[in-house]
């Protein structure tokens, strides 16, 4: 949590650095045309690093991968250095209304990797954007070598219309064994095949009984069940 607070402060600075008009009519380029802004940033980086290699995905406005960089950073630790880079190249990772939540960095002798989840404001604190994260890989001196991203911009902070109790009831009515005492967690499904139009606010409900340590994803607007998954890895 301290990391998150620190990060929110940094993000606030980032937001201040890119003024956002009150209306949507003159939104910054990062929001108005995320792919174009990302492409422009990639082009500018390629002028400095001609061997830059970039992977684009059809459902993601920013690049999924940029390699061939050697960009120095400043900061007290790996996370701060990663944020420093992202601040100076924000168009590479368009976030919209989402912010980055620092995860523990991965440190080895040759690499230090800053890692971030995406979150949006939820009904009771930050809500994670499922399956989306960002990694900034650096050498030991803090020079950025690769940026890897699943990030997609979230157009606006969604509204969780369904109460957590209603979500629990929907899951129980579908025949799942809701974990006694378990409380649904707010999260967001980013635009994907399953939610083509926009980010979807959801409740993540623990289920399983003794069988499966699994969760069901409940649409926090309609109450429909959006899927089921397990976190165990065998």
């Amino acid at each position: 949590m301290p990391n998150f607070v620190l990060f929110c402060a940094v993000i606030a600075q980032l937001a201040a650095a890119v003024p956002t008009p009150a209306t949507g009519a003159h939104r910054p380029a990062v929001l108005a045309s995320p792919r174009a802004a990302a492409s422009a940033t990639v082009a500018s980086l390629r002028r400095v690093f001609p061997t830059l290699d970039v992977e684009w995905k059809s459902d993601q406005p920013g690049p999924a991968l940029v390699t061939g960089l050697h960009v120095p950073t400043t900061g007290a630790d790996t996370t701060a250095r990663g944020l420093d880079f992202l601040q100076r190249h924000a168009a590479l990772v368009p976030l919209g209304a989402a912010t980055l939540h620092a995860e523990p960095a991965s440190e080895s002798r040759a690499r230090r990797v800053a890692r971030f989840e995406l979150t949006v404001p939820g009904p009771a604190g930050p809500a994670v954007v499922l399956d989306r994260s960002v990694a900034v890989a650096m050498d030991r001196d803090g020079n950025v070598l690769h940026v890897v991203s699943d990030a997609v911009p979230v157009a606006a902070a969604p509204l969780w219309r369904l109460s957590p109790d209603r979500a629990l009831r929907h899951v129980a009515m579908a025949g799942h064994a809701v974990v006694p005492g378990g409380r649904p967690r707010a999260a967001v499904v980013a635009p994907t095949l399953a939610t083509p139009a926009a980010a979807t606010p959801i409740w993540v409900v623990d289920i399983g009984g003794p069988l499966d340590p699994a969760v069901v994803l409940v649409d926090a607007t309609s109450g429909s069940l959006l899927g089921q998954r397990s976190s165990a890895r065998r």
Binding site: E55, S106, R111
Partner: peptide, 17 residues
Amino acid sequence: RALQAFTKSTSLLGAWK
């Protein structure tokens, strides 16, 4: 070193690169 930089949904193509 490559694995350290992976994200939640890194693709096979991304892993190759």
